[in-house]
Simulated scan of single mutants.
Amino acid sequence: MANYQTLDLKQDNDVLEVTLNHKNGTNPVSNTMLKELIQLADWLRESKEIKYVIFSNSGRFFSVGADLVEAADNFNPAEAQSENIRRMQIVGQEMMRKLETLEQITFAAIQGSAYGAGVAIAMTTDFRFMTESSVFNLPETNVGLFLTWGCTPRLVKSVGAVKAKELIMLCEDVSAKECLQLGLINKVVSEEKMMEEVYQTIEKLRRKGSLSIRLTKKLVNASVAPNFGDIFINETELVERVALSGEPAARMNEFLKSKGK
């Protein structure tokens, strides 16, 4: 099992716990984390021992979203930098596809709020649990972007077009209770009961036919996949176009300045 800079791994028989542990528990989704999640997915694809994967977090946040300190260095109107941004969008899309299509049954144990790219990681999982005080937030338009990595069609499939526009455009906190009502998560649990709830669900799954569970995951995923192709192709070009406008760079720098970074 490999060592990672942004992920802590712990295996317990057929369960792998993956803890996001990056930058003092804020867990920004940096280029390094993206690449390590892809490496992890490639390893899991070859693993015959691991049947269940739990994504959790250290610190107060599941993830604060994309690493804006890193992104602000790239998001400027310079053509070379915008091409790099387009390539990193492809990496983000690859991360989403690889995690979403793992044959293992995956869980997001969200113990703290999730923003932007953190919500994206949670959206790749099969079961999602949030603590009572956690929130989801999609802050992309606050920094001059739109929801990328193929997350927009995933969100529309989950909550419908009208609600998806609201969540993306207004960038407002969505409570755990509302996430449950919208169908974005499976359960709201106390922080103390989080891992117990996850392992109880795993025990229920173990009592089912493993082949039928695996095929069910694939059939459900296939049922919501139509028309993703054109979005994956065009989305990277749109991000590059937005970068060339200069708006993301200006807004990211304003945000970082307000935070004293």
Rank of each mutant, 00 (worst) to 15 (best):
G92E: 05
F55N: 02
Q200I: 00
N3S: 15
L20S: 06
E83Q: 14
T101G: 04
R87L: 10
M1K: 14
I105C: 02
A176R: 07
G144R: 12
M252F: 04
R154L: 12
G112M: 09
Q81N: 15
V91F: 06
N137S: 10
F146K: 08
K177M: 05
K48Q: 12
D173R: 12
N3P: 04
E140D: 15
G160I: 04
F61C: 03
A108R: 02
G209W: 01
M195N: 14
E46V: 00
R154Y: 07
N24G: 03
A114V: 02
A225N: 08
M95C: 07
R206T: 01
N57C: 09
E70N: 11
P248G: 05
L7I: 11
M130G: 08
T19H: 07
M123H: 12
M96G: 01
V239M: 13
E192M: 06
S113Y: 10
L68H: 13
M130Y: 12
C171Q: 11
P153G: 07
V156W: 11
Q200L: 09
E103W: 05
A66D: 14
V198I: 13
T6L: 08
D173W: 04
R128F: 11
D230W: 05
A108D: 06
N76Q: 13
S223F: 08
T32F: 00
E140N: 15
E172R: 15
N13M: 06
T236Y: 05
I213K: 11
R97I: 04
L37S: 00
E70M: 11
K257R: 14
I85C: 08
A41C: 03
L16D: 06
A243F: 03
Q11L: 07
P28E: 01
N31E: 09
A250C: 03
E247K: 15
T131S: 13
L155T: 04
A108L: 05
L145P: 05
L170E: 15
T19C: 07
R128A: 09
S30R: 02
E100W: 07
A114H: 09
K35V: 00
A122N: 12
E254R: 13
N76F: 08
S158I: 03
F232V: 00
S47L: 01
F55D: 06
F107P: 01
S63R: 13
I38A: 01
A72W: 06
N227M: 05
P77Q: 12
R97A: 07
S245W: 09
A41I: 00
V18H: 02
G118W: 06
I233R: 14
A250I: 02
K217L: 01
D12F: 07
C171N: 15
M252N: 02
P77K: 12
F75C: 06
S175E: 07
E49W: 03
S258P: 07
A117D: 10
I213S: 12
S258A: 13
T125F: 04
I231K: 08
K257I: 00
T148F: 14
